[in-house]
Amino acid sequence: MGKPQIFIAKEAGCSQSAVSKHVNRKLSGRKKYERKRCTTNRENRSLERHVKQNRFRNLGELHKEWTEAGVKASRATTQRRVKEFGYSHIPLVKPLLNHRQRQRHLTWAKKKKKKWTVAQWSKVLFSDESKFCISFGNQGPRVWRKGGEAHSPSCLKSSVKFPQSVMIWGAMSSAGVGPLCFSKTKVTAPIYKEILELSSADQLFKDADYIFQQDLAPAHTAKSTKSWLNDHGVGVLDWPANSPDLNPIENLRGIVKRKMRNKRPKIADELKASVKETWAYIPPQQCHRLITSMPRQTEAVINAKGAPTKY
């Protein structure tokens, strides 16, 4: 701005010599040198190897192993280095798959469903049971509070030991969602047959042919259930065991729970009404987007050799 150094020093609250050094440094193009790091690149690589050997080691264990190898670094330095590597400390929860289940996942994706198109997946009626509780765990919005207001009633999030809950059965396809069926108890074979009587297949597909998807829960694989499906001419999609991450209705359930975060039902009837209302407002376009991801999910299973995928 063309101001003299005396004016700049007065405005900045420093000496004129400090202003002069700063200006001369900028004009001369001198670079600011960073503080010398206390660990070498070789030592940093050894720390990264320790992280990769066991992903569930805590920071104290990593720091102990690293320093026992002769590295002189503080615990804070260890934490900074791990952060620089780009590692996260929150694991994702995926179903546990043994070797046989992984092989069946791979066979299912590679030999049976690899060539399926979006049009074929659109003819599948996906279904699943799910449990909704009044307390949604740690999910929910944050609270705005000042220091000392942690125990204020308006800033507390209530929790109960055995929260009220509702068990639902729902179905979806690329055409949208069907009506929900509520159950007060665990879904058994007789209860499941009653649910199937109220199935939403006719509403979603009308007179068109469809394939029904269900997991391998005991109520689904019971002889009475299989007999009911055969008597009603319902074709069932072959489905690998322990594979909820392949079912797009699982993603739909997560969407419903996220939309219900700001709702605070106090009794089971309010929870039931809230779930029903949120489910009914899911647009068909959202269901169609989930169905269009099925070819990508199948390809991801093949690439992962049957192991859990990002879906």
Rank of each mutant, 00 (worst) to 15 (best):
N24K: 14
K31R: 05
E43F: 02
G13Y: 03
R30A: 00
S15P: 06
S15R: 10
V23C: 10
N24I: 07
V23Y: 07
R49E: 14
R49M: 13
F56L: 15
R30G: 00
G60V: 09
T39D: 05
L47H: 01
K26R: 12
G13E: 05
V19F: 00
S17C: 11
R49P: 03
R30C: 00
S15V: 04
S17I: 07
N41C: 05
E43V: 02
R35F: 09
V51A: 08
E34I: 01
G13H: 06
Y33T: 11
V19S: 00
N41Q: 08
G60R: 14
R25S: 06
S15G: 15
R45H: 09
K26A: 08
T39Y: 04
R49L: 14
H22D: 04
N58H: 03
K36M: 13
R49N: 12
K52L: 10
N41V: 05
N54K: 13
C14Q: 06
S46G: 10
H22V: 03
K31V: 02
K32E: 04
L27A: 12
H50E: 11
S46M: 14
N24V: 06
K31C: 01
F56M: 13
V23P: 02
N54A: 06
V23S: 11
G29D: 00
C14R: 09
A12D: 05
R30D: 01
K31Q: 01
K31T: 02
F56S: 14
Q16D: 05
V19H: 00
R42E: 14
K32V: 09
V23L: 14
S28W: 03
A18P: 07
Q53C: 10
N58F: 02
R25P: 01
A18M: 15
L47C: 00
R35V: 12
Y33M: 11
H22R: 13
A12T: 02
K32T: 09
A18T: 15
T40M: 06
R25M: 08
T39M: 07
K26H: 07
S46R: 14
S20G: 08
